[in-house]
Write a protein that binds this DNA or RNA. Sequence first.
DNA 1: ATTAGCACTCCTCATTAGTGAGTGCTAGCA
DNA 2: TGCTAGCACTCACTAATGAGGAGTGCTAAT
Lengths: 348, 348
Amino acid sequence: MADIELDERKVKILNAIIKNYLETGEPVGSRTISKYTDLNLSSATIRNEMSDLEELGYIVQPHTSAGRIPSDKGYRFYVNNLIAAKDKEVSDMQEWMIEKTEKMESLLKNVAKMLATNTQYATLVSAPSVVSNKVKFVQLSAVDEHQVLSVVVMDGNIVKNKIIQVEKPLDNETMLKLNMLLNTNLNGLTVDQINLAVISRLKEQAGIHDEIISQVLDTVAETITEDDDLQVYTSGATNIFKYPELADSKKASELLTTFEEKQSLVELLTDNGKTDETGIQVYIGEETPIATMKDCSIVTATYELGDGVKGTIGIVGPKRMDYENVVNNIKSLKGQLDKILKDEDSKT
Amino acid sequence: MADIELDERKVKILNAIIKNYLETGEPVGSRTISKYTDLNLSSATIRNEMSDLEELGYIVQPHTSAGRIPSDKGYRFYVNNLIAAKDKEVSDMQEWMIEKTEKMESLLKNVAKMLATNTQYATLVSAPSVVSNKVKFVQLSAVDEHQVLSVVVMDGNIVKNKIIQVEKPLDNETMLKLNMLLNTNLNGLTVDQINLAVISRLKEQAGIHDEIISQVLDTVAETITEDDDLQVYTSGATNIFKYPELADSKKASELLTTFEEKQSLVELLTDNGKTDETGIQVYIGEETPIATMKDCSIVTATYELGDGVKGTIGIVGPKRMDYENVVNNIKSLKGQLDKILKDEDSKT
DNA sequence: ATTAGCACTCCTCATTAGTGAGTGCTAGCA
DNA sequence: TGCTAGCACTCACTAATGAGGAGTGCTAAT
């Protein structure tokens, strides 16, 4: 791609500038590079090269007579061409942690937390979307005379429940019949297959005349289809204070509010098909779909739990984030999630 | 109490200073008071009185030749003596919202959110502690050959569940027997009554020799006793950016981290018995039990769900928070929570 | 007891000058 | 032709200075 316009030396210099800037966060000057790199060149030569790089749009001067910092294009080049994809295992901690947890919810919370601790950036994890998930098991039980408990187990062992208030108790026989009915009719269906038609067919079979049964069936349907209000888990949002370029009151406030509200984060996590073959996606600066994150970079990965049921992991940090570390971390984690969730699924 | 050392005029002036400071956040000078109040006094007179008030510790000068701001003692006096406890109803929105939600979790989330929107401060709500909550209903069901679902309903309709992996399927009869056994033995017990002794008695009755049954019973016990990792819901944490005295990078970072980690918030929410007859507790500045909140004030209230099962609502804001509004808000909310939770409970 | 007046304090803000990091350019060198 | 040394220039950052103003404390007069 950009190989035509950049000779080897320019690439080396650009790389050096970015590496240095990632560490310090300060504009980097020609003298620094002249000493930092192994190509023995004077600062003057570097200056000429830097001038070229600036003209080509890879670096930028915050003001005349300051050093240079990478532009979005520069970062992009770095991410595309310069990251050594070392597949080294990222800490055993991860595996251990994942082994231990069994509930989806706490698993994802832990994933977010661990990733935040590991990277020192803000992280977000979305739960696998349930829309195309299948019903595995349904059960109604009489808790007491006026309350019926409806429990649904989905593929991937996601358990949902709801308590139904009923006017008068359901007798045992009806209960049994309903359970049979529900399981034979709903098992194997996905959430979006359970629509009004299915429900009314159920009601017919159960004896549509009974008001209570009708109500119960409605609630079961609700239990299943109820969207668990967009499950996004975040962690380490306050890490942004570690990066001066994001820590000023105004920016931090906006960013943290975005994180707190979670709503808009969904946009980020819904797979837009632009992920590359590794399933990992990097947004730099202006590329991000969320306005309040214009000064950030975001790395996301989608993980799968079989059958196209997908969730997403994301990391948000300053543009000068340690892309190498982050990408490796997220890649390793994605792999493990893919694995564990499929395993758990196949255990059934 | 302080009635001896403060004559009526001083009280009026102190009140005026605090009111004014609550609004502006700026130190308030003698001239301002001289015009603001109805007691026609010149600024010089006010100055003398303020000098006295300062000596008595109710107000403080941030630096020589600045106006005065209330000290913690001043705020305390204000809260104790000067707040008009108008019991006016706080927005119908509240009731409406509470009616609508049925799940404890989303109910509390909404409470936190609404309170944050209403007051523009940060809020936290802890779920009712489950320790002394009673088991109402237990059920095991075979999801498939290798998985058994354990569901427990507690008083207040809190539902817990867990999936148990079993080596080989349990036959219907055993299942039925176990369910009978569990319900007759556990119903009505509180969480902390369910200890090892109870469990082993259960095992004995069920036929201790069976490894699988033993495992299943252990997991049921786990399901019940498992602490739902300290359920604290927060909202509006980013509101602190609205108050310059808290918004600087360092303080905001500390505060928000405290909120994000939630762990330490528990300290705040565990009832320490110091609440007054209304169940409402106000911490001002140094009085707060959490170090990072030394520059804040906190108002908490405990709500009950019968039988001494308690949860807490809290508001965190700057010391110059609108105590009157906050106290009223929280009082009204507490009342409604008390009511609704008891109602729901008595519906059983 | 209250008030007017005045000197004083000290924060705030804008201006100024000094410093240094870093650049662009030019001329000289291999 | 490519590299380098040198120099003038730019501009953010810092500290010092001073004017302005809000507010106080004290004193003397009412």
